[in-house]
Design a protein around this nucleic acid. Structure first.
Lengths: 183, 183
DNA sequence: ATGTACCTACCAAGTAGTAGATAGACAAAT
DNA sequence: ATTTGTCTATCTACTACTTGGTAGGTACAT
């Protein structure tokens, strides 16, 4: 893997572990065994690095959506939910939740890309739900976009909250979501 | 108001606006027109200040619970939800959400108090829901504690997310919660 | 010889936190 | 009634450290 990719990977992990304002270029250089100036060579500013991380997510999400596009809604929603299961296993929170918390401290340019990421996720989940409803495998009493908002907020905050309540609560929330939409 | 109380108030606002790691003692001293050493006089360390903010919430919550204890479940859940409505109006996020995001960077002592706050909120909402269910005004198909988790995660994350989607989405989420539990 | 990816060595700014002085309020001792 | 001592809340002035970021050099592959 290229140094550039490794920097993005480590930055992503650090953002989701400590937050955007709590990691430094030194943290990354230390993890990679290079000097902080070398990190700046690949990403001149912290904002540049943040944008690269978000863009990586945009690309990965695009890929995920394409890969699961012709699958059943039930499986597609599981693909979505499983993202959080892996994140939970890491003991970290999700990128959107982390950056959304630090929103007022990040560069407006980064905000634009983050907004795109949120839109893309929201549209994806909305599509899955609408598809499931149309095929008669899902049932819910609000418009798909609203149901998507409910599910996304459940998952996003469950990662943050269940580090403070029962660790088992994450799985409870996830199963409740599945049961709730399944006809 | 005493300087001590004012420091706590400003710290709370800053934590919910920028995050625990993005505000400084200087920010507070500037806002109050005093020197940073004077802030340290009242709160020797940032950890002390963070704990004072969380304790302030514990006390306020206690008061709120007592004040609404003999009211109808419908009104009590509205009291709970209205906390987030005010926070949304401020353009800030909730304290729990902010500190939960920065969890790995704060002192273990602060974590303990934060855990107490989350427990208290979770128990409060669980009680309201169980009471409403017993009185036949609420209906839901999971145990009250799980439903409380769903609602709390919805509200917590809605503050974070709706700064990136539609501003109107916050109200949509709130109304969906009310409609969902009302029999 | 040109570009890539790293290095050494630095800087200015901001951070949490400390030492020690000062000024006023209040109470006890003279 | 005045002095003395103590407490509170502030100040000036500082320290040690970390931060994001830069200038300029080097090794190496194409």
């Amino acid at each position: 893997m290229s140094t550039r990719s490794e920097i993005i990977k480590i930055a992503d992990e650090l953002i989701r572990e400590k937050g955007f304002n709590a990691f430094s270029f030194y943290d990354i250089s230390k993890a990679l065994g290079i000097k902080n100036a070398s990190v700046h060579y690949h990403f001149p500013t912290k904002n540049d690095l943040g944008i690269a991380v978000v863009n990586e997510y945009l690309a990965k999400l695009e890929e995920m959506m394409a890969d699961s596009a012709d699958k059943e809604p039930t499986e597609r929603i599981n693909v979505y939910l499983s993202i959080y299961t892996s994140t939970k296993a890491e003991g970290r929170i999700c990128l959107v939740g982390s950056l959304a918390s630090d929103l007022q401290t990040v560069d407006p340019e980064l905000k634009v890309y983050l907004k795109q990421l949120v839109d893309k996720i929201l549209n994806w989940v909305t599509d899955i739900l609408a598809d499931g409803q149309a095929r008669g495998v899902f049932a819910f009493s609000v418009v798909p976009r609203t149901k998507a908002l409910m599910i996304i907020t459940n998952m996003l905050a469950s990662l943050q909250l269940t580090r403070l309540t029962d660790e088992q609560d994450f799985e409870t929330i996830k199963q409740t979501i599945i049961k709730d939409i399944t006809k």
